[in-house]
Design a protein around this nucleic acid. Sequence first.
DNA 1: CTTGAAATTTTACGCGCGTAAAGATTTTCG
DNA 2: CGAAAATCTTTACGCGCGTAAAATTTCAAG
Lengths: 343, 343
Amino acid sequence: MDGRRIKNMEEFAALSGISRPTVSKYFNDPTSVRQATRKRIEAALEQYDYRPNIFAVNQNRRNTKNIGIVVPYLADPFFAEIARNIEQRCIEAGYFPILFSSHGEKELETDVLDTLRSLKPAGVLLAPLGRRSDRGAVERFCHDVPTILFDSEMDALGEAFVGSNNPQSVGLMVEYLCRTGEPPSFLEMKAPTNPNARKRHAAYVAAMERFGHAPMLVRVPGAGWDFERIGYEAGMRQLAGAGFPTDTVLCSNDRLAIGLLAAAFESGRRVGHQDGSDFRIAGHDDHPFARYTSPSLTTVSQDYAAIAERSLSLIFETIEAGGTLDQRRTILFEGKLVMRMSA
Amino acid sequence: MDGRRIKNMEEFAALSGISRPTVSKYFNDPTSVRQATRKRIEAALEQYDYRPNIFAVNQNRRNTKNIGIVVPYLADPFFAEIARNIEQRCIEAGYFPILFSSHGEKELETDVLDTLRSLKPAGVLLAPLGRRSDRGAVERFCHDVPTILFDSEMDALGEAFVGSNNPQSVGLMVEYLCRTGEPPSFLEMKAPTNPNARKRHAAYVAAMERFGHAPMLVRVPGAGWDFERIGYEAGMRQLAGAGFPTDTVLCSNDRLAIGLLAAAFESGRRVGHQDGSDFRIAGHDDHPFARYTSPSLTTVSQDYAAIAERSLSLIFETIEAGGTLDQRRTILFEGKLVMRMSA
DNA sequence: CTTGAAATTTTACGCGCGTAAAGATTTTCG
DNA sequence: CGAAAATCTTTACGCGCGTAAAATTTCAAG
């Protein structure tokens, strides 16, 4: 790294003794120039530390190297973790990830999509708000930009969907709980924020009926993304009052379960599957902190890394195919039972 | 929103019956054109839904409307939450936030900084890795781009630092613990990842000495950002072996404390400040989930919203002042004791 | 040394927009 | 109503780079 700052590619080309178009070619694909030329450019690069102006580059390229990532709520550890995975792999693949959060709001999601469109991304990985999304806006966006949906399905939108198999995973958990104790009641939000909530609801009902039990739903009020609080307050109310329909509660997601665990603890209930326990709580997602609740949370895992990896490889495939896949794909990962102490 | 897509400002200007330079002026500052003209442009805007090309705009403006945000690790709820706050306020202020995570790695932080530089941001809010940062790289960056540091101080870098007052907050907690029971030992990582760890260490030692106690340090191995695991494993080791120096443990941060809580629970210790309890655990940060541990975690709060807000207002001030503040500022927020059940 | 393909240089244009300058138009106000 | 002031239109240039076409050089093989 040397003193003087390089203003533009013209100047850098002059200093390295190569013509500007060739240098431009190099930056697009280093292997596209002769070995000797490449060496010279790279030597100059070390000395002067020049980088092409991103804006000028992107203005002229039809296909930028930007990959947009949109998640509904970044402060949710699930999305934070999945975003982290995607970002890292993106960089390794030579792309430039740009991360957005919808902050749980429909209008912001639409705004983000508009912004993203003008960023001319090569592709976008979108975890939409789902039912709360402006379907028209998402549809138009997917029409303009190669998009892979993940986590939350909106049928027929995007080139593919990558998510988890809720009927399978919820079924797994219901089966386990029924086999080892009382059949579970199901704790969920009355007006769910989480895009997968509806599917899990349906999956729970179906599984219970399959095993010959009547579904027992505990639908609690609350809005927003403060799931722990919602689970906690619901738990406190129920446990102080009529209690839950059974001594086993399956929560629509781990964050609700974490809140319920706190409420159970404060209410003096002994949670777990061991002797002396009188209450079982299970969740769904294998949230990063589920391992560290007291007692540790029995849940169903989602394979974060796999979802990230598959989504990315699909968007790359789409990009290489020119922006569309011949047929819409649906990739569902199976959940695995994570047996811990709470149920 | 009408049918045909507008290609560029030229076309949009023609459709709205206004000259392109005036339209350009409008997009820079809607109030800078006559009321009547503005109305006409906005009418056309509704009809045709045009947005200026971001890249072309940014290429020509010296001062973009981009605000860079860099955090060391996005999957840490503390940073996720603070990033969320900053992003939202940024948008409200008419700026365009671009979020980056260093993923805890020095090289990536430097890369992010380089990328950011070529993005010509109006300003940057940087939470550096701290001691693990490449100081030279950060220094050069701050020299080129108006930067406010937050969370982690690197002295004399950037236009200002916004963070929390560790001596005060840790002192508060030590005082409380000493007053209400055995003096605390201090659980921390041997090679801390978290940038504030050193300061908290020093603050703990100073506070203990102030109250006439010998510091009792429990320094545990482990690297990376998986703090809960590190706290958990350390706890299991200690509790199976010699135990902790005292029945009260102050953890360097809440995530370690959450891990330790899990270990204590599994080891059959009764954690809390009430009768029948034999172990106290306290943390630091008021992590979003600290409220929902079992028992709920006593900790010291950091005012996330205030840190976000102050950092942003400082960067705006810097931008308006032309890129530099006449004098470097240091803003420290005081922590508040959050008394819950664990200590 | 000749030949031809591959790589590079030269030249030139365009991307979409910011911005400056000069002239035309509209608004404001005495 | 008339002149100054404010605003707008026209015209023109530049930003930094991608990219195409033609001219030139390089390199390996004959």
